[in-house]
Amino acid sequence: MDVRPGIAWALAIVLFVVYALQQHDVLSRLQLTDLCSATVFLVALGLGEGLVLLTRGIDLSIGGVLSMGTAIAATHFVSPGTELLWSSVIIVAGAGVGVLNGALIGILKLQPFIVTLATWSIVSGVALLILPIQGGSIPPHFASWINQSSLGLPNAAWIILAMVAGWSWFKRTRLCRRIYALGSDPEGAAIAGVNTRSTLIAVYGMAGVCAAVGSILYAMLTASGDPTVGNGEILPAVTAVVIGGTSLYGGSGGFVGTVGGAFALTLIADVVFAFNLTSYWQQLADGVVLIIAVLAGGAVRSMRLRRAALRAP
């Protein structure tokens, strides 16, 4: 039984309790809806980033895809028909960036961080060409959906639940088993017949799609576009995944912890706000939390390796 996702959820719950004690109306319907809609885009980013981390990679280009997505949304969502059309354009563009990453990493065997750093730069440039400065607008009827409820639950919560459901289905697929195999032992997986190339292309492609979906959710949340917003969201996305117990060394972890990690990060911002501290504390906390989580993950890993070494004959 892996306890690591539990740690992320425990952190989120502790933060939530602190927040609730400090702020009175936290348990109100409105506040809970806000919490979900502020977190949902990070959950989407974390879903994709988590898959990449499972393969021992990293995807920095999600920052560019997030910026580009909000830029396209803010300039092209003008009427009900166009929203669906351009949402699919955003998703296809995200998938395209991801597949390009995957091809360069899987087929040419280039290093993930430098490839996705380069595509991050390229896609950021495209975002700035589409929308040079922060602005544009999302039609209110489309944007407000994220803050509404259906069947007694906030729509944002439904999306998170849908992603969790999707993950529990995906976990049983052959592709997912290949991803874990590739991450825990690349050479062994290749010998066992895992097609490294197509698996990596699929993983980075999915990360691109997740980032694109995240960008649409982010645009709904802020009701506008920002061609540089993604630069600041790479770190939270990675942090949510790492707090959630997914190892940077690949092969272990999962999405359930990531959801807890994403909620914990949103709640850090809420707690900072509730104690009347400036939001700058949040920046500091995000960075520190990432480094601590990575160190803790590394410590757990070396402990396991040592135990495994002791057990070996």
């Binding site: 990293i58 920095l60 961080f113 790479i234 770190l235 990675v238 940077l248 400036t278 700058y280 504390w281 949040q282 920046q283 500091l284 906390a285 995000d286 960075g287 520190v288 990432l290 480094i291 990575v294 160190l295 590394g298």
Partner: peptide, 25 residues
């Protein structure tokens, strides 16, 4: 501590940003 350079420097980047913003308000 064995943190990969990309994660370590990305984390520090945000820490420096936060510290600067706090100092200069």
């Amino acid at each position: 501590l064995g943190v990969t350079p990309i994660i370590m420097t990305l984390g520090m980047s945000t820490v420096v940003e936060g510290a600067l913003l706090l100092y200069t308000n």
